[in-house]
Computed example of a mutant assay.
Amino acid sequence: MARPSSRRIPAVLWTWYRGGNFRGFQRQVEGPTVQDALEGALGRAGSPATVMPSGRTDRGVHARMQVISLRLPEDVPPEALPARLAPHLPPDVGLCVARRPPGAFHAQWSASGKEYRYHLTLGAPPPEAWRPYALDVAAEAALQPGHRVTPERLEALLARAVGTRDFTAFHERSSPQKPRTLQTATLRELGGGLFEVRLEGAGFARYQVRYLVGSALKVAAGLLSEEQWRAALDAGAALAGFKAPAHGLVLWEVRYPSAVDPFGPDERLHPPGLPDAPPFTGAPPG
């Protein structure tokens, strides 16, 4: 009888998850984590492997598109993994696409940019389906007592953050202090008082999105001055900001140069197997 091949070849996964029941992506002594769930499912499906993500997400953060590099036995077809892993994954984790990547691809090092989306409500509690995935601004203790936050004010403050700077006032010191480019920062209305902050950039430091959104809300509520906001952005001046809660944040998309992108434009627009439910529904492109 022929022995199974021990040769391993690269594969790439597009995974999604709701992060509320996990202690982040990366394996930890105290779980559960998304990495635990994926590697456990791979092992139980007979294809044990170590997964390498495009980047870590923190406890409670969700992902519509987390990209994973791994190496599989050459006799395991990646395209079979979504169906093969489904019975072994918890309900809050799934796969959209699995395939061989083009060329010398790495989920993290090949990435050219990411988009994050943060969901919140202004002037109304979140709709029931969105309650676990959106910040109720009016009820947030860190924003009391403050003025009512208007969409126009919040969007103007976020737009002021666009550009290349070190963002040192808006991330943990554990992340390298270096220039980072925030390419876009927009606010979209989803209806019923629900809004979506969309942030696109070449790279983000730890907690950068949550500090940017939370601190912009604090300025919009009149609890910090706009002068302090500008000084923090332009000169890295210390800011008594606010780290927005994790449950509103979604890693929405990871982008790659066209020469190595494993995913087509139609897949990116309509991901196969992605739940059509919060927090993965949002404003249309554009």
Rank of each mutant, 00 (worst) to 15 (best):
A11K: 08
E39N: 01
H106S: 12
E227P: 07
G273F: 01
P48I: 10
G201M: 06
P265Q: 05
L212Q: 08
A134N: 03
L38E: 11
P127C: 08
A220I: 02
L194M: 03
L269F: 04
G163I: 13
S6E: 15
S5F: 04
E79L: 11
A244Q: 09
E253F: 06
E227H: 14
K218V: 09
T164W: 10
V209C: 00
F105L: 06
L122Q: 00
T15Y: 05
P77L: 13
H270V: 13
R59N: 11
S174I: 15
Y133I: 09
H88A: 09
N21V: 12
E227R: 15
P90H: 04
R198T: 10
V213H: 06
A111K: 09
V162C: 14
D36H: 12
T184Y: 05
S69P: 09
G46H: 08
A220L: 03
G286D: 08
D58C: 04
L182Q: 02
Y116F: 04
D136K: 09
V149N: 00
R153I: 00
A83H: 09
P10L: 13
L251V: 03
R268Q: 13
P87M: 11
A240Y: 08
R7G: 04
A235I: 04
L38T: 06
E226A: 10
V250Y: 07
T33S: 12
S258N: 13
K178M: 12
A202T: 15
D92W: 01
W109H: 14
R3E: 15
A159I: 08
R160E: 14
L42F: 06
G146F: 07
G60K: 00
G113W: 04
F22M: 12
H171N: 03
R71A: 15
W16V: 02
P271S: 05
V149R: 00
G94S: 10
Y207D: 07
G222L: 05
H247A: 10
G60W: 05
S54K: 00
R268C: 02
R268I: 03
H62F: 07
P87G: 13
L95T: 03
E267M: 09
